[in-house]
Write a protein that binds this DNA or RNA. Structure first.
Lengths: 154, 154
DNA sequence: CGAAAAGGTCAACAACGTTGACGTATTCTG
DNA sequence: CAGAATACGTCAACGTTGTTGACCTTTTCG
């Protein structure tokens, strides 16, 4: 447990590391804030957001695939899914190849909402990248990729 | 609502912005993973972590201050607080100036755990920064600060 | 002394997700 | 073709968390 005083000059000191964590939080909060408010205004939650997000990127996704992707039970998925359908944001249609499967896709309105949510996030990222400059952007990506490498990257 | 097709060359394209969001998630997950496991092994939750974290940075904090800081009710705080106390990770002592106030501080063991948790995160950050280089680190900070600026920075 | 502040605690709720158990089409297979 | 398996849907019982409300104690302060 001894605080090994590495004589080798570290690239980042403790203060910087602490700041890294703090800044990470604030940044995340900033990026999530607006989308969250928009969702809440419609009585939607993060689960709905996740659904919209994945369906937007993989139109025609089946309920089962979505379930696996989000790692939740079908029961947990069922309610939000129907609410989105009721609100006319998504559509469920039997698959041609297999009538048991229900393919999910966004309606025009659903795509619009998803775009708005994503757009809010993009705005913040774009602004930050623009303000920081292309070089900083490159550095940011590099660091983030390194960090992400430690997890179960997709 | 119209997707304004800006002809002005953006510093980041849609693909990059999408990636930014994804990478952000993975990075966060990576940084949280280990601490979470350590906590879970002791039957502790994120709330406990948050408490340890703030108390570590502000020793002698009062229950009320902590409550305000974490933005939860005293009832929600009470249970985790006592569990931490029972596990000998924190100590509650009456304040000299005001016997109504209970000052919270980490015990040696508590500080040790907090240090371990923080240490795990620092390890990842340090590794990422080291691998990415000082320049990338600088860029990373710049972008993160810009992003965080949009939120209620502390 | 009496009001106010800092805490603690019991109890009723509400949100969210989980497991378990069935029920219904639909497709696949021996 | 009959039965097993698949993809979903749904009712129900829980467990976890955090919230609000009400009440009580100790301590401070006008």
């Amino acid at each position: 447990m001894s605080a090994k005083k590495t004589t080798a000059k570290p690239i980042a000191d403790t203060a910087a590391l602490n700041e890294a964590w703090r800044v990470m939080h604030f940044a995340l909060r900033a990026v999530i804030a607006e989308p969250d408010r928009i969702l809440a205004a419609r009585g939607l939650t993060r689960m709905h957001h996740r659904i919209l997000f994945f369906v937007a990127h993989t139109p025609g996704m089946s309920v089962g695939e979505l379930q696996t992707t989000l790692d939740v039970t079908k029961q947990a998925l069922n309610a939000p899914l129907r609410q989105l359908q009721t609100q006319g944001l998504i559509e469920l249609a039997k698959a041609d190849h297999d009538a048991r499967v229900r393919e999910i896709r966004l309606t025009t309105e659903g795509a619009s909402l998803e775009g708005k949510l994503t757009g809010e996030q993009h705005k913040l990222f774009a602004a930050a990248f623009a303000a920081a400059g292309a070089e900083a952007h490159e550095g940011w990506r590099t660091v983030m990729r390194e960090l992400a490498r430690g997890a179960g990257m997709a």
